[in-house]
Design a binder for these strands. Structure first.
Lengths: 265, 265
DNA sequence: CGATCTGTTGACTGTTATCAACTCCGGTGG
DNA sequence: CCACCGGAGTTGATAACAGTCAACAGATCG
């Protein structure tokens, strides 16, 4: 992994929510961090841990998972900082485990770093606040999801959300996204049983909405998926979110660079 | 309503999460505000509104309600500031309606006030951050609730949570709490149908866990309710939260001051 | 004193959970 | 190289939970 990789991921995430100047980006390059590698279902942080660093996700997926119920309450993609919202309040204790969904790479960044850049740049401060607000909006949206949509729509919605969030940080170039997590993980996020999750995925395959094979999801029909999920990405707080819910999600690279996958019959 | 009432509610809420000095309380008394009265199901803020004031709830209940699904994503009690988390980010747009559940009284407080007191007092800043963290923790907890508990436990959990939060701001003196909201509102919060909500309440009555009559809930058996809900109030971030989940929730006033309701057979 | 909203009840339907068995795959050790 | 093993995915049968519909009762309010 080349030097500055962590900087790049954070910069991608922040520019997704706020326009940053060259000076801002320069500030980000001063980030110090240590790298941690995690395997599937490893705990990055455990319930009750006291944290002096923040976790910046570089590769893979993380989630907050309630140890009692197994319920997943948030999912994170590269560029996200799952414990940013702790605001440096010393006595805060974690209520859940921060768990890797598939192999993951995390940069541990001193909490003070985020405070410092907030003081030195108003737009960085705004960007970090927006990250926090987006997190809250995601939680509310997920309550709406669990409360009002059936299991097919929930699964479709989760896949739509992850796709757009990967997009926003320059990953998932065409309609493909890595799915190193298990169907049981998906079930835990959507609050359905693993067996039912499997049937829902089969239904999505049957409808030619997507493929899920060899740890990779290939979206065959983005419009259908958005429609099934009633997905409206405004809540993500992305500057270009509107583009993603349109009929075609505006691939970030052109077709000749990323030829469409052939869709097996 | 006497002068200083708004100050009192906010002070009660903040001292619930952080110890405050006399100087801190003095700062709070400088709050300027205007009062608004709302009827049941009135919108205090509408989706898409831009806000220059924060809403400090003084009496009654408020909730965030998604206009599309009708799902309620948070409920607020007096002393809460539902839109505190907007952090003064100008471009933030509301994603839901802020709606009154029953008659409510709201103090509109300039957003700058919260910024000013944060600058002038470190403990007030910490208290406000804790409020924000408690809000996030509530959202996560509600996801766990919707995802992993059946409807009886959900209803019981919501009632437990509201009871403890009222307690923390000096309301709900014995085992009684006002319920000016309808059973349909409760259903919208718990993501169940109104008919089913009614049956759950009857079940709770049948088990002698509570009464619900003339816009008032009387908890007859707090232990049973906590047990049914598997309620663990740590997530609320209250300094004395632990006391509330114990067998008896330590009434804040003695029996001779607040005689127990007679429980009809 | 009628209109409307809220609460209540019964019958029926539909979605999802649960249980159990089986397949498929990748890895591991004989 | 192959037999085994464990985890993940798949399938069918059944049961439990909650939604929907329709009707009515009771309260509240102008």
């Amino acid at each position: 992994m080349q030097r500055g990789f962590a900087f790049t991921k954070l910069a991608d995430r922040l520019t997704g929510v706020e326009e940053l100047s060259d000076d801002d980006l320069e500030l980000l390059t001063r980030m110090s961090y240590t790298i941690g590698h995690f395997g599937s279902h490893d705990h990055v942080l455990r319930k009750g841990d006291q944290t002096s660093n923040c976790c910046l996700l570089l590769q893979g997926y993380l989630c907050w998972k309630d140890p009692g119920s197994g319920q997943i309450t948030s999912i994170y993609v590269p560029g996200d900082v799952p414990d940013l919202d702790l605001h440096g309040v010393a006595a805060s204790q974690l209520g859940s485990h921060l768990t890797a969904l598939g192999p993951a790479v995390v940069a541990f960044v001193p909490r003070a770093f985020f405070h410092d850049i907030s003081v030195q740049s108003e737009s960085l401060a705004r960007a970090l606040r927006r990250l926090d607000m987006a997190e809250t909006a995601c939680l509310r949206n997920w309550i709406i999801n669990l409360g009002s949509r059936d299991s097919l729509a929930r699964v479709a919605h989760l896949i739509c959300e992850i796709t757009v969030r990967l997009w926003a940080v320059g990953l998932s170039h065409d309609y493909r996204l890595p799915s190193p997590f298990t169907q049981s993980d998906l079930a835990a996020a959507c609050a359905i049983s693993p067996v039912h999750a499997n049937r829902i995925i089969q239904e999505l395959r049957r409808r030619r909405a997507l493929q899920w094979q060899s740890r990779m999801i290939t979206i065959s029909d983005w419009r259908m998926l958005v429609h099934l999920a009633r997905f409206e990405p405004d809540y993500l707080g992305l500057r270009h979110a509107g583009e993603f819910a349109r009929p075609e999600p505006a691939p970030s690279i052109s077709p000749e660079e990323a030829p469409a996958l052939s869709v097996p019959s």
